[in-house]
Simulated assay, not measured.
Amino acid sequence: MSFRTTALSFTLSAFVTGTAFASQSPTQPEDQFDLAQQLALTPNTDSPSDARYWLEQSAHQGYLPAQKQLAEDYARGLTGNIDDSQAIYWFTSVALNDPTDSGFLLADFIQHHQTEVTNADLVDAWYQLSALKNPQAEEAYNQFLEQRFNQMRAKQVSEIVELDKKATVEEKQKQTKGHGEHKAEPSQAWFASGALGLAILVGGGLFGYRRHHRQTQINAANDASKSLQLETQVKELQFTNKQLKRQLEKVFKEFKKVKNQSDGQKLVVACAMFGYTPQTIPDSKAVKLRYRQLSKLYHPDSRGSEEEMKRLNQAFKTISQNVTKE
């Protein structure tokens, strides 16, 4: 058998094995980890995050090799977006469960990401891990999430108020400038109209010695005056229409600008409620997991209320519409 034939047979065998593995949807952490390894070598363009998904399934069952690789995955963005908070979470889990590691990977990661890692990220990771087995830690974690959300919400509200103030001042300045331009032009038009009317009256008086001829001149002057008045009115209307058109264009541009800012603010506030930013939204599975965690905090049956739960559901809907990976 030639080398080419052997290589082709091996590739086909690996593909068939990987397909069979995927179709079985393994439940054992070792099998899930092995499937993640295979998917990482032959990524699916339709579902590029499949490898990370199976790593998460295995890691959540306490399989240390999966936890280590998943932490590296989040830290370096191997099969998805970089997420420092998730990397800290899994490095911390390894530190607690692997005696041979004893926090080495966590310390190494923090040392090389000092500008990105915050105290809030560390507190979040430790609370999450403690909450898995300690009800007291779960309660403290819920309070921590609520406090962080309130801080982020207060910051966003302050920024929105400042934007509103700035928009109001700019709008007043534009209106003042627009009124000044509008008043100047009509005054010139009326001045021109008055001058023309005076010229017509003088012209009619010069020919006052002949009644018939005067009447003819008066009629002609009246017609000319009406024609000039109509022309002046048409020019004024054209000027007014141009002004209105420019104002409408400005209003439309401002409307689009404010609408885009409003949509962006909605996403920022929704992400803040979930502990994300618009640039670090994870895949839908992680979003749904965080939603279930926050539901325990905001549901009316626990410490929340219907209004808070409604706000959480709206935030979940907003974030889900902006998830880029499944």
Score class of each variant (00 low, 15 high):
A184W: 07
P29H: 05
K259L: 11
S262I: 08
G205S: 15
S187F: 11
V169Q: 12
V268K: 10
Y298T: 06
L132N: 07
G304L: 04
I281H: 00
Y209G: 15
D101C: 03
D73E: 03
A221Y: 07
E308Q: 11
K183D: 11
G62W: 05
I281M: 00
L163N: 13
D164W: 10
G197K: 03
W190A: 13
A20P: 00
F33V: 00
Y127C: 03
F15A: 13
R210G: 15
Q111R: 15
N260P: 02
G205T: 15
E116L: 06
Y276L: 02
A224G: 08
V251R: 12
T115W: 07
S58N: 02
Y291H: 08
Q243T: 09
W190D: 07
W126V: 06
F15M: 10
K250C: 13
Q279G: 04
I218F: 13
L312N: 00
L294S: 01
E231V: 05
Q175S: 07
L39I: 03
G178V: 05
I319A: 01
D124W: 10
Q321L: 12
H212G: 15
A95K: 04
A20K: 05
F316V: 04
A189E: 07
S187E: 15
A140Q: 14
M273S: 04
Y298W: 07
L96W: 05
E72M: 08
E185W: 14
Q128A: 10
